[in-house]
Design a protein around this nucleic acid. Structure first.
Lengths: 159, 159
DNA sequence: TCGCTGTGCTTGCAAATGCAAACACCATGG
DNA sequence: CCATGGTGTTTGCATTTGCAAGCACAGCGA
Protein backbone atom coordinates (compact mmCIF):
# COMPACT_ATOMS: atom_id res chain seq x y z
CA UNK A 1 0.00 0.00 0.00
CA UNK A 2 3.00 2.24 0.25
CA UNK A 3 4.06 1.39 -3.21
CA UNK A 4 3.34 3.96 -5.87
CA UNK A 5 0.27 2.41 -7.26
CA UNK A 6 0.51 2.50 -10.98
CA UNK A 7 -3.17 1.92 -11.11
CA UNK A 8 -3.93 5.03 -9.18
CA UNK A 9 -2.33 7.28 -11.73
CA UNK A 10 -4.35 5.59 -14.41
CA UNK A 11 -7.52 6.00 -12.46
CA UNK A 12 -6.66 9.60 -11.88
CA UNK A 13 -6.13 10.21 -15.56
CA UNK A 14 -9.32 8.47 -16.49
CA UNK A 15 -11.18 10.38 -13.85
CA UNK A 16 -9.83 13.66 -15.10
CA UNK A 17 -10.67 12.71 -18.65
CA UNK A 18 -14.22 11.82 -17.74
CA UNK A 19 -14.47 15.04 -15.87
CA UNK A 20 -13.42 16.91 -18.97
CA UNK A 21 -15.97 14.90 -20.90
CA UNK A 22 -13.65 13.89 -23.67
CA UNK A 23 -13.08 10.50 -25.19
CA UNK A 24 -9.99 8.40 -24.84
CA UNK A 25 -9.05 8.95 -28.44
CA UNK A 26 -9.56 12.65 -28.16
CA UNK A 27 -7.31 12.94 -25.17
CA UNK A 28 -4.77 10.74 -26.88
CA UNK A 29 -4.74 13.07 -29.85
CA UNK A 30 -4.48 16.17 -27.74
CA UNK A 31 -1.74 14.64 -25.66
CA UNK A 32 0.11 13.32 -28.67
CA UNK A 33 0.12 9.72 -27.54
CA UNK A 34 -1.48 6.72 -29.14
CA UNK A 35 -4.92 5.74 -28.00
CA UNK A 36 -4.05 2.11 -27.23
CA UNK A 37 -1.25 3.22 -25.03
CA UNK A 38 -3.44 5.69 -23.23
CA UNK A 39 -5.96 2.95 -22.68
CA UNK A 40 -3.32 0.76 -21.13
CA UNK A 41 -2.10 3.58 -18.98
CA UNK A 42 -5.56 4.31 -17.67
CA UNK A 43 -6.02 0.67 -16.74
CA UNK A 44 -2.67 0.49 -15.04
CA UNK A 45 -1.16 -1.96 -17.48
CA UNK A 46 1.66 0.35 -18.43
CA UNK A 47 3.76 2.77 -16.49
CA UNK A 48 4.10 5.89 -18.59
CA UNK A 49 7.34 7.79 -18.68
CA UNK A 50 7.60 11.33 -17.46
CA UNK A 51 7.38 12.68 -20.97
CA UNK A 52 4.16 10.87 -21.68
CA UNK A 53 2.87 11.96 -18.32
CA UNK A 54 3.69 15.52 -19.15
CA UNK A 55 1.94 15.33 -22.48
CA UNK A 56 -1.12 13.81 -20.90
CA UNK A 57 -1.16 16.59 -18.35
CA UNK A 58 -1.07 19.11 -21.14
CA UNK A 59 -3.80 17.29 -22.98
CA UNK A 60 -5.90 17.38 -19.86
CA UNK A 61 -5.00 20.98 -19.21
CA UNK A 62 -3.97 20.12 -15.71
CA UNK A 63 -0.74 20.65 -13.91
CA UNK A 64 2.08 18.26 -14.61
CA UNK A 65 2.91 18.34 -10.97
CA UNK A 66 -0.47 16.96 -10.11
CA UNK A 67 0.22 13.93 -12.25
CA UNK A 68 3.72 13.50 -10.90
CA UNK A 69 2.38 13.60 -7.40
CA UNK A 70 -0.21 11.03 -8.36
CA UNK A 71 2.50 8.87 -9.82
CA UNK A 72 4.40 9.17 -6.57
CA UNK A 73 7.28 10.91 -8.27
CA UNK A 74 7.18 14.22 -6.44
CA UNK A 75 6.15 14.03 -2.85
CA UNK A 76 9.55 14.42 -1.56
CA UNK A 77 10.88 17.82 -0.86
CA UNK A 78 9.07 20.97 -0.07
CA UNK A 79 6.31 19.87 2.21
CA UNK A 80 5.77 23.56 2.83
CA UNK A 81 2.30 23.23 1.54
CA UNK A 82 0.95 25.98 3.61
CA UNK A 83 -2.33 26.25 1.87
CA UNK A 84 -3.80 28.64 4.34
CA UNK A 85 -0.95 31.09 4.05
CA UNK A 86 -1.20 30.99 0.29
CA UNK A 87 -4.91 31.59 0.41
CA UNK A 88 -4.54 34.47 2.80
CA UNK A 89 -1.98 36.22 0.67
CA UNK A 90 -3.73 35.64 -2.60
CA UNK A 91 -4.80 38.83 -4.27
CA UNK A 92 -6.77 37.37 -7.11
CA UNK A 93 -9.78 36.44 -5.04
CA UNK A 94 -12.21 38.43 -2.99
CA UNK A 95 -12.39 38.40 0.74
CA UNK A 96 -15.53 36.35 0.72
CA UNK A 97 -14.02 33.82 -1.65
CA UNK A 98 -11.00 33.64 0.58
CA UNK A 99 -13.11 32.84 3.56
CA UNK A 100 -14.95 30.17 1.63
CA UNK A 101 -11.71 28.49 0.65
CA UNK A 102 -10.40 28.61 4.17
CA UNK A 103 -13.61 27.18 5.54
CA UNK A 104 -13.58 24.33 3.08
CA UNK A 105 -9.94 23.54 3.62
CA UNK A 106 -10.26 23.46 7.36
CA UNK A 107 -13.37 21.37 7.10
CA UNK A 108 -11.47 18.90 5.01
CA UNK A 109 -8.70 18.65 7.50
CA UNK A 110 -11.08 18.32 10.35
CA UNK A 111 -12.91 15.58 8.55
CA UNK A 112 -9.67 13.79 7.81
CA UNK A 113 -8.65 13.94 11.43
CA UNK A 114 -11.93 12.46 12.46
CA UNK A 115 -11.58 9.81 9.79
CA UNK A 116 -8.06 8.97 10.82
CA UNK A 117 -9.08 8.64 14.41
CA UNK A 118 -12.01 6.45 13.57
CA UNK A 119 -9.75 4.27 11.52
CA UNK A 120 -7.14 4.12 14.22
CA UNK A 121 -9.72 2.73 16.58
CA UNK A 122 -10.35 -0.04 14.12
CA UNK A 123 -6.69 -0.81 13.76
CA UNK A 124 -6.98 -4.01 15.70
CA UNK A 125 -9.19 -5.46 13.02
CA UNK A 126 -7.89 -5.77 9.52
CA UNK A 127 -11.26 -4.80 8.13
CA UNK A 128 -10.80 -1.70 6.06
CA UNK A 129 -14.06 0.12 5.50
CA UNK A 130 -12.31 2.12 2.81
CA UNK A 131 -12.92 5.73 3.67
CA UNK A 132 -11.40 6.91 0.40
CA UNK A 133 -11.96 4.91 -2.75
CA UNK A 134 -9.03 6.59 -4.43
CA UNK A 135 -6.54 6.05 -1.67
CA UNK A 136 -3.69 7.84 -3.33
CA UNK A 137 -1.75 8.31 -0.19
CA UNK A 138 1.59 7.95 -1.80
CA UNK A 139 3.49 8.86 1.29
CA UNK A 140 6.00 6.13 1.81
CA UNK A 141 7.88 7.84 4.58
CA UNK A 142 8.20 11.01 6.54
CA UNK A 143 4.54 11.24 6.88
CA UNK A 144 4.91 12.94 10.19
CA UNK A 145 6.60 15.81 8.42
CA UNK A 146 3.26 16.86 7.07
CA UNK A 147 2.39 18.82 10.15
CA UNK A 148 4.99 18.57 12.83
CA UNK A 149 5.28 22.13 13.91
CA UNK A 150 1.67 23.08 13.73
CA UNK A 151 2.03 25.11 10.62
CA UNK A 152 -1.68 25.13 10.21
CA UNK A 153 -3.33 26.80 13.14
CA UNK A 154 -5.42 24.43 15.19
CA UNK A 155 -9.08 24.91 15.12
CA UNK A 156 -10.39 27.11 17.85
CA UNK A 157 -13.41 25.00 18.34
CA UNK A 158 -13.53 21.34 18.95
CA UNK A 159 -16.42 19.06 18.62
CA UNK B 1 11.02 16.89 -29.20
CA UNK B 2 14.54 15.61 -29.08
CA UNK B 3 15.94 18.80 -27.75
CA UNK B 4 19.35 18.75 -26.13
CA UNK B 5 17.61 19.12 -22.84
CA UNK B 6 18.63 15.60 -22.09
CA UNK B 7 22.18 16.76 -22.16
CA UNK B 8 21.46 19.62 -19.87
CA UNK B 9 19.89 17.35 -17.33
CA UNK B 10 22.97 15.18 -17.47
CA UNK B 11 25.24 18.13 -17.02
CA UNK B 12 23.10 19.31 -14.20
CA UNK B 13 23.33 15.96 -12.45
CA UNK B 14 27.04 15.75 -12.94
CA UNK B 15 27.44 19.26 -11.70
CA UNK B 16 25.42 18.54 -8.62
CA UNK B 17 27.35 15.36 -8.03
CA UNK B 18 30.68 17.14 -8.29
CA UNK B 19 29.38 19.79 -6.00
CA UNK B 20 28.51 17.11 -3.49
CA UNK B 21 31.99 15.68 -3.97
CA UNK B 22 30.88 12.15 -4.48
CA UNK B 23 31.88 9.68 -7.14
CA UNK B 24 29.68 8.39 -9.90
CA UNK B 25 29.52 4.99 -8.36
CA UNK B 26 28.66 6.40 -5.00
CA UNK B 27 25.80 8.41 -6.33
CA UNK B 28 24.65 5.43 -8.32
CA UNK B 29 24.55 3.39 -5.15
CA UNK B 30 22.77 6.04 -3.17
CA UNK B 31 20.28 6.56 -5.95
CA UNK B 32 19.78 2.86 -6.47
CA UNK B 33 20.71 2.90 -10.14
CA UNK B 34 23.56 1.20 -11.90
CA UNK B 35 26.73 3.12 -12.41
CA UNK B 36 26.97 2.55 -16.15
CA UNK B 37 23.52 3.90 -16.59
CA UNK B 38 24.24 6.92 -14.48
CA UNK B 39 27.33 7.54 -16.56
CA UNK B 40 25.27 7.48 -19.72
CA UNK B 41 22.70 9.75 -18.21
CA UNK B 42 25.29 12.29 -17.21
CA UNK B 43 26.68 12.33 -20.72
CA UNK B 44 23.27 12.66 -22.27
CA UNK B 45 23.33 9.29 -23.99
CA UNK B 46 20.22 8.07 -22.22
CA UNK B 47 17.00 9.71 -21.27
CA UNK B 48 16.17 8.59 -17.77
CA UNK B 49 12.61 7.95 -16.78
CA UNK B 50 10.92 9.93 -14.09
CA UNK B 51 11.48 7.19 -11.57
CA UNK B 52 15.20 7.13 -12.16
CA UNK B 53 15.21 10.90 -12.07
CA UNK B 54 13.45 10.85 -8.76
CA UNK B 55 15.90 8.37 -7.32
CA UNK B 56 18.83 10.42 -8.51
CA UNK B 57 17.32 13.47 -6.90
CA UNK B 58 17.05 11.58 -3.66
CA UNK B 59 20.60 10.39 -3.98
CA UNK B 60 21.71 13.94 -4.53
CA UNK B 61 19.50 15.24 -1.76
CA UNK B 62 18.05 17.81 -4.05
CA UNK B 63 14.51 18.59 -5.00
CA UNK B 64 12.93 16.29 -7.51
CA UNK B 65 11.22 19.25 -9.05
CA UNK B 66 14.54 20.86 -9.79
CA UNK B 67 15.52 17.85 -11.85
CA UNK B 68 12.17 17.73 -13.60
CA UNK B 69 12.52 21.35 -14.52
CA UNK B 70 16.00 20.67 -15.84
CA UNK B 71 14.63 17.79 -17.84
CA UNK B 72 11.99 20.07 -19.26
CA UNK B 73 9.21 18.07 -17.73
CA UNK B 74 7.75 20.70 -15.48
CA UNK B 75 8.14 23.73 -17.66
CA UNK B 76 4.46 23.98 -17.06
CA UNK B 77 5.23 26.80 -14.69
CA UNK B 78 2.16 28.70 -15.65
CA UNK B 79 0.56 31.59 -13.86
CA UNK B 80 -0.25 29.03 -11.29
CA UNK B 81 -0.66 30.95 -8.13
CA UNK B 82 0.92 29.87 -4.94
CA UNK B 83 -2.45 28.69 -3.78
CA UNK B 84 -2.64 26.03 -6.44
CA UNK B 85 0.91 24.95 -5.80
CA UNK B 86 0.20 24.70 -2.12
CA UNK B 87 -2.96 22.74 -2.69
CA UNK B 88 -1.24 20.37 -5.03
CA UNK B 89 1.55 19.58 -2.63
CA UNK B 90 -0.62 19.35 0.43
CA UNK B 91 -0.50 15.91 1.93
CA UNK B 92 -3.15 16.36 4.55
CA UNK B 93 -6.10 16.18 2.22
CA UNK B 94 -7.39 13.50 -0.06
CA UNK B 95 -7.27 13.63 -3.80
CA UNK B 96 -10.96 14.34 -4.09
CA UNK B 97 -10.71 17.12 -1.62
CA UNK B 98 -7.76 18.51 -3.48
CA UNK B 99 -9.69 18.51 -6.68
CA UNK B 100 -12.61 20.22 -4.99
CA UNK B 101 -10.38 22.98 -3.71
CA UNK B 102 -8.72 23.43 -7.06
CA UNK B 103 -12.03 23.50 -8.85
CA UNK B 104 -13.47 26.06 -6.51
CA UNK B 105 -10.40 28.22 -6.59
CA UNK B 106 -10.23 28.17 -10.35
CA UNK B 107 -13.91 28.94 -10.53
CA UNK B 108 -13.34 31.93 -8.33
CA UNK B 109 -10.58 33.21 -10.51
CA UNK B 110 -12.55 32.57 -13.63
CA UNK B 111 -15.44 34.47 -12.22
CA UNK B 112 -13.23 37.34 -11.24
CA UNK B 113 -11.70 37.42 -14.65
CA UNK B 114 -15.12 37.55 -16.18
CA UNK B 115 -15.92 40.61 -14.16
CA UNK B 116 -12.77 42.34 -15.19
CA UNK B 117 -12.95 41.27 -18.76
CA UNK B 118 -14.02 44.71 -19.95
CA UNK B 119 -10.43 45.67 -19.68
CA UNK B 120 -8.05 43.23 -21.22
CA UNK B 121 -8.86 41.52 -24.46
CA UNK B 122 -6.53 38.96 -25.84
CA UNK B 123 -6.79 36.31 -28.50
CA UNK B 124 -5.14 33.63 -26.47
CA UNK B 125 -7.87 31.12 -25.96
CA UNK B 126 -7.79 27.47 -26.66
CA UNK B 127 -10.26 26.02 -29.05
CA UNK B 128 -11.58 23.60 -26.52
CA UNK B 129 -13.97 23.96 -23.66
CA UNK B 130 -12.51 24.09 -20.23
CA UNK B 131 -13.60 21.46 -17.76
CA UNK B 132 -15.58 23.89 -15.65
CA UNK B 133 -16.49 27.02 -17.49
CA UNK B 134 -19.26 27.77 -15.10
CA UNK B 135 -18.99 30.40 -12.47
CA UNK B 136 -19.49 29.25 -8.95
CA UNK B 137 -21.23 32.34 -7.85
CA UNK B 138 -22.41 31.15 -4.51
CA UNK B 139 -20.37 28.19 -3.47
CA UNK B 140 -22.12 26.22 -0.82
CA UNK B 141 -19.16 26.14 1.45
CA UNK B 142 -20.99 24.53 4.27
CA UNK B 143 -22.41 21.93 1.97
CA UNK B 144 -19.14 21.16 0.35
CA UNK B 145 -17.60 20.90 3.74
CA UNK B 146 -20.45 18.88 5.07
CA UNK B 147 -19.91 15.97 2.74
CA UNK B 148 -16.37 15.85 1.47
CA UNK B 149 -16.27 12.12 1.70
CA UNK B 150 -14.56 11.87 -1.60
CA UNK B 151 -17.30 13.25 -3.69
CA UNK B 152 -16.95 16.24 -5.87
CA UNK B 153 -19.88 18.52 -5.23
CA UNK B 154 -22.66 18.33 -7.78
CA UNK B 155 -21.69 20.25 -10.83
CA UNK B 156 -24.11 22.98 -11.65
CA UNK B 157 -22.80 22.74 -15.15
CA UNK B 158 -25.34 22.37 -17.83
CA UNK B 159 -25.01 19.15 -19.64
C1' DT C 1 57.71 -5.26 -11.32
C1' DC C 2 53.39 -6.79 -9.71
C1' DG C 3 48.88 -6.44 -7.05
C1' DC C 4 45.07 -3.80 -5.37
C1' DT C 5 41.70 -0.14 -5.23
C1' DG C 6 39.59 3.71 -7.11
C1' DT C 7 37.72 6.44 -10.98
C1' DG C 8 34.58 6.47 -15.27
C1' DC C 9 33.33 4.11 -19.78
C1' DT C 10 31.84 0.28 -23.31
C1' DT C 11 29.42 -3.80 -24.38
C1' DG C 12 25.68 -7.13 -25.01
C1' DC C 13 21.02 -8.43 -23.36
C1' DA C 14 16.38 -8.99 -20.66
C1' DA C 15 12.57 -6.18 -20.00
C1' DA C 16 9.78 -2.45 -20.73
C1' DT C 17 7.86 1.53 -23.34
C1' DG C 18 5.08 3.21 -26.97
C1' DC C 19 2.86 2.74 -31.47
C1' DA C 20 0.35 0.99 -35.90
C1' DA C 21 -2.95 -2.12 -37.17
C1' DA C 22 -6.74 -4.67 -36.25
C1' DC C 23 -10.38 -6.21 -33.16
C1' DA C 24 -15.12 -6.28 -30.64
C1' DC C 25 -19.03 -3.73 -29.35
C1' DC C 26 -22.66 -0.27 -29.79
C1' DA C 27 -25.20 2.98 -31.79
C1' DT C 28 -27.35 5.41 -36.03
C1' DG C 29 -29.18 5.30 -40.90
C1' DG C 30 -29.04 4.30 -45.87
C1' DC D 1 -29.92 -5.91 -44.37
C1' DC D 2 -25.09 -3.96 -44.41
C1' DA D 3 -22.47 0.43 -44.11
C1' DT D 4 -20.57 4.20 -41.39
C1' DG D 5 -18.83 6.24 -37.28
C1' DG D 6 -18.21 6.19 -32.32
C1' DT D 7 -16.39 4.10 -28.05
C1' DG D 8 -12.46 1.30 -25.70
C1' DT D 9 -9.41 -2.90 -26.17
C1' DT D 10 -6.03 -6.48 -27.93
C1' DT D 11 -2.04 -7.90 -30.64
C1' DG D 12 2.59 -7.81 -32.77
C1' DC D 13 6.70 -5.33 -33.21
C1' DA D 14 10.44 -1.46 -33.41
C1' DT D 15 12.70 1.18 -30.11
C1' DT D 16 14.34 2.19 -25.72
C1' DT D 17 15.38 1.76 -20.86
C1' DG D 18 18.28 0.01 -17.38
C1' DC D 19 21.51 -3.44 -15.69
C1' DA D 20 25.38 -7.15 -15.15
C1' DA D 21 29.75 -8.01 -16.69
C1' DG D 22 33.83 -6.43 -18.33
C1' DC D 23 37.24 -2.80 -20.12
C1' DA D 24 40.74 1.07 -19.79
C1' DC D 25 43.32 4.14 -17.03
C1' DA D 26 45.37 6.17 -12.73
C1' DG D 27 47.30 6.14 -7.93
C1' DC D 28 49.44 3.81 -4.00
C1' DG D 29 52.08 0.22 -1.28
C1' DA D 30 55.17 -3.91 -1.30
Amino acid sequence: MELPKVGSIGEYIRDQRKQAKISLRQLATQAGVSNPYLSQIERGLRKPSAEILNQIAKGLRISSQALYVQAGLIEDREPDSDVLAAIRTDRTITERQRQVLIDIYESFRKENRAEAQAEAERTTENARPEPEPQGVDAVPATEAAASPNGRIPPEPKEG
